[in-house]
Design a binder for these strands. Structure first.
Length: 308
DNA sequence: AAGACGAAAGTGGTTGA
DNA sequence: TCAACAACTTTCGTCTT
């Protein structure tokens, strides 16, 4: 007796995606998380192989990063430790340290509070799943602790963290979308994104064009058949080496365009270009490549004739 | 008239010396 | 740090439906 969710209760989308690792089901159209039994596997994403500073290594109970204080109150020790300190000088130094620590930690907390509010705002604007939000919050927190925000605006780091989190969870949004949602320039987001991920050793797999298909298809109101055909085309294109070096959105858009033609659900290049945020020219180029690499002309001919 | 096509020039980012 | 380079965009003229 198992009850399978087949449609998203929120938007009735059919693009439900089961993420085995995270133990959750995500609707790729609206981002709703339908089931969440999250066990945090995300501990091992930093490495400390260089040795030196092992103090950053964390163990222990999972924490939630969307709260500004994760329940960890680290402070320079209190009275107990004082007995060990002999001279007045040492004690003074000690108090100074504690004062510093206090200032720093409250500053960080204040910053986090603001930043997480911003993060939530952007995230809900883009309808991102909770798990992505959590991931982004984690990245941001780490970034603050490492002092990576210095010289950058808080908002841009938030946007960068969100972008990274989307990529890792295979629910990609484009830099342009992040830019629109956050009000930060695209190149700025890209810059901070690269910087932060490099500094924190966050590994990001190159984004897969197929991840964009469901979202684009649903805003173009294309059938499920067309979608799976598009994914199929993408796989072949990948095999033919057409995907490397090219923008994933352009390829996804072209594949979708072709498969729409094949299924008699024609959309204009303009329409497809708009939802994919690329130009018609790019679609044409990819489209042409797809045709002569995959020998789809015959299929196209057939579907044309069928129409008459 | 709208869509599809392709050429040409410009832009931003990556790479390799 | 600079130049070469590929991908992508913008713009525009022409062809097709």
């Amino acid at each position: 007796m198992e009850t399978m969710v087949k449609k998203c209760p929120e938007c009735s989308g059919i693009n439900l995606f089961w993420n085995r690792d995270k133990g959750e089901i995500i609707c790729k159209d609206c981002g709703l998380v339908i089931e969440e039994k999250m066990v945090d596997f995300g501990q091992e994403w930093r490495d400390f192989e260089d040795g030196e500073d092992v103090s950053g290594r964390r163990t222990g109970a999972p924490m939630t990063y969307t709260k500004h204080d994760q329940g960890l109150g680290t402070e320079v020790g209190r009275t107990g430790d004082l007995y060990g300190l002999k001279s007045k000088k040492d004690r003074d130094k000690f108090f100074r340290l504690r004062k510093w620590q206090y200032r720093i930690s409250t500053a960080i907390e204040r910053n986090l509070k603001l930043a997480l509010a911003e993060l939530k705002r952007v995230s809900s604007y883009l309808k991102l799943p909770k798990s992505v939000e959590e991931e982004a919050a984690r990245v941001y927190t780490l970034a603050v602790q490492r002092g990576l925000v210095r010289g950058r605006s808080m908002e841009s780091v938030v946007a960068g963290a969100l972008y990274a989190a989307c990529r890792r969870h295979e629910v990609p949004r484009t830099l342009d979308e992040l830019s629109e949602a956050s009000g930060i320039e695209r190149k700025e987001i890209g810059r901070t994104y690269r910087f932060v991920t490099r500094e924190l050793n966050v590994k990001i797999l190159p984004s897969n064009p197929a991840d964009y298909i469901p979202r684009f298809a649903s805003s173009l109101e294309l059938s499920a058949k067309t979608q799976s055909k598009a994914v199929e085309i993408l796989e072949k294109a990948h095999g033919a080496g057409l995907t490397s070096g090219r923008g994933p959105t352009g390829i996804a858009a072209a594949a979708l365009y072709v498969s729409a033609l094949l299924h008699g659900e024609k959309r204009t290049q303009r329409e497809v270009a708009d939802v994919a945020r690329v130009t018609e020219v790019t679609i044409r180029n990819r489209y042409k490549e797809l045709l002569d690499a995959l020998k789809l002309e015959k299929e196209l001919e057939r579907s044309k004739k069928k129409k008459r």
